[in-house]
Design a protein around this nucleic acid. Structure first.
Lengths: 242, 242
DNA sequence: AGAATAGTGTCTCTAAGACAGTATCAA
DNA sequence: TTGATACTGTCTTAGAGACACTATTCT
C-alpha cells in the first residue's frame, strides 16, 4: 500500500508497428534489422520511443510509419492493438510498448528507402513457422496483429485497405485467402461480395490487362461494417479435431 | 530527429478497470468517487498507478481489482482493452493508462466493502445518456469496453462470465439482452444456445425456485469459441436509416 | 382452474457452399 | 480453336426468425 511519500514509477513508452501487406498473394509484414543493441542485427517490428512528453501515442505511430516505412499514415488503415508491458520484455529496463496495426496496399517499390536501412517485407509464414525469429516479444505482437486482421475481415471493410484502387474482385479474394490462409470458391465469393451493400462500388470504367476475360474494376464503398458478414470457414471445434 | 544526446521521455503508467456486471437485468459498471484532485468528488473508473517499476501491467490490474473492488481476479474474466494516452487527458501531466475489461457475475453484496470507499455499481445507461459524467476520458474507455463485450458475446462464451453457476438459460438470455440492448425471442434463444456444442452443459440436478415451471440448470462448457455464433440482430445500415 | 414460467415443434426465408455452365479476352 | 480468366445460375442445406403449442410449477 503506497504511503504518503510514495511516488509512482516512471516508465519509458514506445510504439511498435505491425504493418501488413500482400505481396505475390502472400501476407507480408515489414521488419527492420536492428542497428543497435539489444538484439542488434536481428529482425524486429519498426517502432521507437515517444519523441517528447507532449507527443500523442497515435501521433508517434504515424511518425514512425513515415520515418521507418516511408508510408503516409493518412492513406492507411491504422488502429491500436494494445499495450505490451511485461517486466523483462526489454533488457534495457521497463519499457512499455503500444502496438499498432497498419494495413497497406501492395507498394510499387519493393521496400521503403527510408531512414532506417534494412527495412524489408517478410512473409509472415516465416515467422510463425519459427524459421525467422523476432526481437523482444515482437512475435506475439505480430500474432495478435494478424489475429486482429483475420477477425476484422469478416465484419468490416478492412480487406479493401490491402488493395490499391481500383481493384478487381479476384484481388479482393486474394486478400481474404492470404489473411485467412484458406481457399475460397471464386463464384461464391463474387456473389457474396457483391451482395453486401456499400462494400465495393463498380467504377464505370471496367477491364484491365491480363490474360483471359477482363475484370470489372471496383473502389471502396462507404460502408465500413459489412452486412451480411463474410464468414470465415468453420474452424475445427475441439470435439471435431481427431 | 533525436540526436546523440537525446533521451526518451519518462511517463507515468496507470491501469483503469471497466468492471461490468448485471444487476436486475441491467448492465452496470463499477465506479468510484474520487477522493483527491483532480476531479475530486466525481465518478471515475477504478484504477491506479503501477506500484513499482517491476509490477506487470496485468498484475497491477488484478491488484486494483482486489483493492478497489474486492474482487478475486482469478475468478473473473479479465482482458486488456488498450492504452489511452492522449496528452492532456490528465491535468497532472503525461499519464498513460492501460484499460482492462472485467466481467463479473452478479455479486451477493450490493457493493464492495473495500479500501476505496464510495465504490458503487451504476447502470451504464446513466453514463452514455449523459446523465452521469465521468472523470478524465473514462467515458470513452467505458464505451470501448461495452463495445468489446458486445462483439465478444457473439463468438465467445463471454456471456457465461456474467452468470453465477449454475445458471438457467433465461438468465443467460438476460445477459445478451442487457449487453446488446435488444429483446430476444426465448424460444429461438433456447434452440440456438443448446445447439452450440460445448457452450453450456446441463448439470444433473435441475430446477430452481421461482413461480412457474422449474428451469434446468447449466454450467459453463469448455468451449470458448462458439460455433455457430449467436448473431446480434442486424444493426441498421446507413442506407436503411432514414 | 388460472397465471406464470419453461421448453418443443414447425414453418419460412436468407445465406452458405457445391458445382455446372456461359462470356470475353489473347495467342 | 484452345486456354485462361471472369462471371452467372442453380441446387441443397444450415441457420435465423416468427410464432403456435405443450409442460410443469404455484396459488
Amino acid at each position: 500500500m503506497p504511503d504518503a511519500f510514495w511516488q509512482p514509477p516512471s516508465i519509458l513508452l514506445a510504439v511498435d508497428l505491425v504493418i501488413l501487406t500482400l505481396r505475390s498473394s502472400k501476407l507480408h509484414v515489414l521488419l527492420v534489422e536492428r542497428g543497435i543493441e539489444p538484439y542488434k542485427g536481428e529482425h524486429a517490428l519498426p517502432g521507437g520511443f515517444l519523441n517528447n512528453v507532449d507527443e500523442g501515442i497515435l501521433a508517434a505511430a504515424q511518425r514512425e510509419l513515415r520515418e521507418e516505412a516511408n508510408l503516409d499514415a493518412s492513406q492507411l488503415h491504422l488502429e491500436q492493438l494494445g499495450a505490451y508491458g511485461d517486466p523483462g520484455r526489454d533488457p534495457r529496463g521497463r519499457i512499455v510498448s503500444v502496438a499498432y496495426l497498419a494495413i497497406a496496399p501492395g507498394l510499387p517499390e519493393p521496400e521503403a528507402g527510408a531512414d532506417a536501412a534494412g527495412a524489408s517485407w517478410k512473409p509472415v509464414e516465416e515467422i510463425d513457422s519459427g524459421r525467422l525469429e523476432l526481437a523482444f516479444d515482437h512475435r506475439w505482437i505480430l500474432a495478435d496483429g494478424i489475429e486482429r486482421a483475420r477477425t476484422k475481415l469478416e465484419r468490416s471493410s478492412l480487406a479493401t485497405a490491402f488493395c490499391n484502387e481500383p481493384f478487381t474482385i479476384a484481388e479482393l479474394q486474394q486478400v481474404y485467402e492470404a489473411v485467412w490462409g484458406v481457399e475460397l470458391d471464386p463464384r461464391n465469393f463474387y456473389r457474396k461480395v457483391q451482395g453486401v451493400p456499400g462494400f465495393i462500388i463498380p467504377v464505370g470504367a471496367e477491364r484491365r490487362t491480363t490474360k483471359g476475360r477482363p475484370a470489372r474494376l471496383f473502389r471502396r464503398g462507404q460502408q465500413t461494417v459489412l452486412h451480411p458478414p463474410l464468414s470465415r470457414p468453420n474452424p475445427l471445434t475441439t470435439s471435431e479435431a481427431n
